[in-house]
Amino acid sequence: MATSSRRTGAETSKTRGVLLDCVEQLMLEEGYAAVTFRAVAAKAGVTSSLVQYYFRTLDGIFLAAIRRYTERNIRHLAEALQAPRDQLPRVLWEYSRDEATSALTTEFMALGNHRESVRAEIAEATEQVRKLQLDALSPGVDGHRFLDQELTPGALLLLIVGIPKFLNLEEGIGVRTAHRELVDAFEQYLGPVQPPVPKSRSGRSPRSRN
């Protein structure tokens, strides 16, 4: 009986994972608006009723997708934060640039503008990640100054994670004036790259815009 229950649980988890894979593929290929019970079912080669068995509502699909995406991000971040403490600002900068240019992140943020439950989930996930980043950064930022002002760990972190998001927002509408200048200046401020730049969750370079 126990073996059968474990097998059933594993199969259930696998099916749910396949459906969420299809959700992500639809969002990447056609945008979040393309995600419907019927579209997910067609992508997975199953019936719409099976999709609704795992996810009762469309919001439920998106919330599950965001939670899984957040879990992946946190694992990726935790690995990156194993770097030496004095290199953490640089590591967080590379991570933030990768995250800001993720196509899925862009789709989830756009979706959050239209669905309150999704917006709340994104906010909660962001706070989780921000706390992890700040806890790692806080012991190692003594002496960091910016524009002749000494930065608190929180202020430094907000610069590190905020600049890539701002640049990506502008690039999304085709504005790139002075972006390279700001990136070059901030990278010079952070100092030379010491550790090898980690690959993103998709396996592409963090600086890729493709």
Rank of each mutant, 00 (worst) to 15 (best):
L158I: 07
S48L: 04
H179I: 00
K14H: 04
L19Y: 12
S5L: 13
V35M: 08
R115K: 14
P164W: 00
E79F: 04
A2T: 06
A120V: 13
K199Y: 09
W93M: 04
Q188T: 12
L167A: 00
L92T: 00
E29C: 07
G9E: 07
P206I: 06
M109Q: 12
A33W: 05
F108L: 10
S5V: 14
L20P: 05
G174E: 05
L156V: 05
Y69P: 01
E150K: 07
A110N: 08
A41I: 02
K14N: 03
L28S: 10
T57D: 01
L88I: 11
S49D: 12
V161E: 12
F146I: 11
A34N: 10
A34H: 08
E94I: 09
C22E: 10
F108A: 06
E116W: 14
L104I: 09
R38K: 14
V193F: 02
R75F: 00
Q149L: 09
H179W: 08
F146D: 07
H144G: 00
A185K: 13
W93E: 05
A2M: 07
S202Q: 15
T70K: 09
E11N: 10
S117Q: 13
A178P: 05
G31V: 07
G31M: 02
R68F: 03
R145Q: 12
Q87P: 00
A80C: 07
M27L: 03
A125S: 15
P206W: 15
T15S: 02
R38I: 11
V91P: 01
F55K: 01
H114Y: 13
M109T: 10
I163Q: 05
I160E: 01
Y69W: 10
T15R: 15
K199I: 00
A65Y: 04
F62H: 09
L77M: 14
S205D: 15
D59G: 06
L111R: 11
E170I: 03
F166E: 06
H179N: 03
R16D: 02
A100G: 04
E181T: 15
N113L: 15
A41Y: 01
S200Y: 15
A10M: 11
Q82M: 14
K43L: 03
L156R: 07
Q149A: 12
C22Y: 05
D135M: 05
A10K: 11
V40K: 00
A155D: 08
G9Y: 01
V197G: 03
R68I: 00
A65M: 05
